[in-house]
């Protein structure tokens, strides 16, 4: 029975799995293979080489970015990588900080119209990312809503130029675009908290703050961690936001990958940068989970 069940299960799963193997596994493998090749002009040289990776760490005169020295012959990828990580980190911290109280409100305060609140938070999550980013261009632009609004009200004479095309605009836009995404996981783990635990804590003399710190906050960790990762991982490699609102100063590593593939015709170098980016993200995520003791949290909560 069990082996028959396994066979039926596998045959039901295999069509979807094969499509995913062709459209997800094959591209990742191709990306890895490509990163060991080189390109000159349109020709791809298929001899195995580590040249692309070596180029990323080759020592040289380098450059200084925000006081950090990058002593590399080709410092652009390293600078953009550090910058992308920093910007994503700031955006992620803002997202979690702003989304957390909202999730708490949903889980503990909303009794009526819960479905309405949920739909209200779900809609932005499903509407075009491109349009959400573009709307910030309308808000912050030189001829945008804030500038024209303030001029109309007579508060400023000249448009404020520092609003758009800088890292801050990118971080605000990233945070706004991903906020809807992060409320839900936090809400789910708050909603799961056994309310009798909270009552017990009060009965045994915990103050509201102590109860929050010792029960609500720790039990919300799985969802909060999931939300953190769900925002941080994709934003590091984001391409749309830096392109639309970043300007020359707000570019990120995704913009470089796009240029290498579509404009400069150096796909192997682009592939190597993509791979290194994924490895760095994976290493940071692993480090983060290790630092906060994720295993312990999971064991305790189950």
């Amino acid at each position: 029975m069990s082996s028959a069940s396994a066979r039926t299960g596998l045959s039901l799963l295999s069509p979807a799995f094969l499509v995913m193997a062709a459209t997800l596994l094959a591209p990742v493998v191709a990306l890895i293979v490509m990163s060991f090749w080189t390109q000159s002009g349109f020709e791809i040289d298929r001899t195995f080489t580590l040249a692309n990776y070596a180029r990323l760490v080759e020592p040289g005169e380098g450059t200084v970015w925000y006081g950090i020295r990058f002593p590399l012959a080709y410092p652009v990828p390293a600078v953009l990588m550090v910058k992308s990580l920093a910007m994503s980190l700031v955006a992620t911290i803002c997202v979690i900080g702003v989304a957390w109280p909202m999730a708490y409100f949903l889980a503990f305060r909303v009794t009526r119209y819960k479905a309405m609140w949920m739909i209200l938070l779900t809609i932005p999550f499903w509407t075009s990312y491109l349009l959400r980013v573009f709307s910030w261009k309308i808000v912050l632009g030189f001829n945008g809503a804030i500038n024209s609004g303030l001029q109309w009200l007579g508060l400023i004479k000249e448009p404020l130029e520092f609003l758009l095309y800088n890292p801050l605009a990118v971080m605000i836009t990233l945070a706004h675009s991903w906020i809807a995404f992060s409320v839900l996981p936090i809400y789910v783990s708050l909603e799961k908290i056994d309310r009798t635990l909270l009552e017990a804590a009060s009965d045994l003399g915990d103050s509201r703050w102590k109860r929050f710190r010792r029960i609500t906050l720790p039990l919300s960790m799985p969802g909060t961690i999931a939300a953190t990762l769900l925002v941080f991982i994709p934003t590091v490699g984001d391409y749309v936001t830096p392109t639309l609102v970043g300007g020359p100063g707000g570019t990120m590593i995704g913009s470089l990958v796009q240029q290498l593939f579509l404009r400069q015709d150096n796909a192997p170098l682009g592939a190597a940068i993509s791979i290194v980016m994924m490895l760095i993200i994976a290493a940071l995520v692993g480090l983060f989970l290790w630092l906060i003791g994720y295993r312990r949290i999971r064991r305790r909560i189950g």
Partner: peptide, 23 residues
């Protein structure tokens, strides 16, 4: 494995697919 597209930055998926299709 099948849930990976939810966390991998889409630009990585895009360039990977581009290599498979073109090369």
């Amino acid at each position: 494995f099948m849930m990976l597209p939810l966390v991998v930055p889409s630009i990585v998926l895009a360039v990977g697919l581009l290599i498979v299709v073109l090369r």
